[in-house]
């Protein structure tokens, strides 16, 4: 049974369609939600929380239809908003306890849980301070504590590491990893692709309100183009090698350090590189496989659709 199953959901803001038939499934673990600005990531999160009405479609959580669950659905979901979302003048523990109460925890249990989750996210020493005195990193962790206090099955994180320093970011990702280890499902919406690479096994790419791709990062990496750095030795400065690569349908980009950056389509491998080098009348002296980053994959997914990625 999938944790979250989204089926053909559409959201309209007046005449603008923000989500156009979004369909995907989340089996568990951490899932990255990627897309350029205006792709519909935040709208999708709000739709899953019931904060914006669905024009059509439906989704289910733990096998239960959202329409049947009603507001009770939100007892199983934790939400970390992208922007502020904290009330000045309230202490950290009071804020988290309030959120716990709103999720149905009795007052005493909410206060106890607030202390526990604040300790879990590393804010035990600052819990009695007013939230407006918190640093950006502390605020993000406080929001995470608020999302965890009622022990949800699914966490919707909207840019959780936004504005954090590297240490704070690593701590936040560590927390997210641990949350996933606890058996919770995390849907991570972010612009920071490294966070997705570090945390997620699956990605859903949204573009213009539609799912552009939704696959496991590993499968995608395997199925996509491969990148190599090659030093070719032969007569001339490599023109023959570049021409041979062109004939093979590859991209060969000469670099200042004398290496060629090769982009091979899926299915081709190192053997093909050595073969083409021989055909060009030379040999490969140095050969390095470059890991395809999620960013490159993401850009290629958008480029396939003939889109620019200025929003990134």
């Amino acid at each position: 049974m999938s944790v979250l199953s989204v089926h053909d959901i559409r959201v309209k803001y007046g005449s603008t369609e923000a989500l156009r038939g979004v369909t995907f499934e989340v089996q568990g673990g951490a899932v990255g939600l990627l897309g350029p600005n205006g792709a519909g990531k935040s709208t999708l999160i709000k739709a899953l929380l019931g904060l914006v009405p669905l024009a059509s479609g439906a989704f289910s959580l733990m096998g239960q239809d959202s329409r049947a669950l009603g507001p009770a659905l939100r007892d199983r979901v934790g939400y970390v908003p992208e922007r502020e979302g904290l009330r000045p003048g309230t202490s950290g523990v009071a804020w988290v306890a309030l959120l716990g109460e709103l999720s149905g925890l009795p007052r005493r249990a909410a206060v106890e849980r607030a202390h526990e989750v604040l300790q879990y996210v590393g804010l035990e020493e600052s819990r009695y301070r007013n939230v407006e005195t918190f640093s950006t990193g502390m605020r993000q962790r406080l929001k995470l504590a608020g999302a965890l206090v009622h022990d949800p099955a699914l966490l919707l994180l909207d840019e959780p590491t936004s504005g954090m320093d590297p240490v704070g970011r690593e701590e936040m990702l560590g927390l997210c990893r641990d949350i996933v280890r606890q058996g919770k499902t995390v849907l991570l919406s972010t612009h920071i692709l490294k966070d997705v690479e570090a945390l997620c096994a699956q990605v859903v790419i949204l573009h213009r309100g539609q799912v552009q791709a939704g696959v496991s990062v590993e499968d995608w990496t395997r199925s996509e183009a491969q990148h190599f750095l090659v030093q070719w030795e032969g007569e001339g400065r490599g023109e023959a090698f570049a021409a041979a690569c062109g004939r093979a349908g590859w991209t060969a980009e000469p670099r200042k350090d004398g290496l060629f950056k090769l982009v091979l389509p899926a299915g081709e491998g190192p053997r093909s590189v050595f073969r083409v080098a021989r055909e060009a009348g030379g040999a490969v002296n140095r050969f390095v496989r470059e890991e395809t980053s999620l960013e490159e994959l993401f850009l290629s997914a958008l480029q396939k659709n003939g889109e620019t990625h200025a929003g990134l």
């Binding site: 009770a72 149905g104 925890l105 849980r113 300790q119 879990y120 996210v121 641990d178």
Partner: peptide
Amino acid sequence: PVYEQGYEAYDGRRNPLGSR
């Protein structure tokens, strides 16, 4: 690391939806 301090699930009762 902060995330090694443990997280406990909540299995206590919840107040009815109408009183939120």
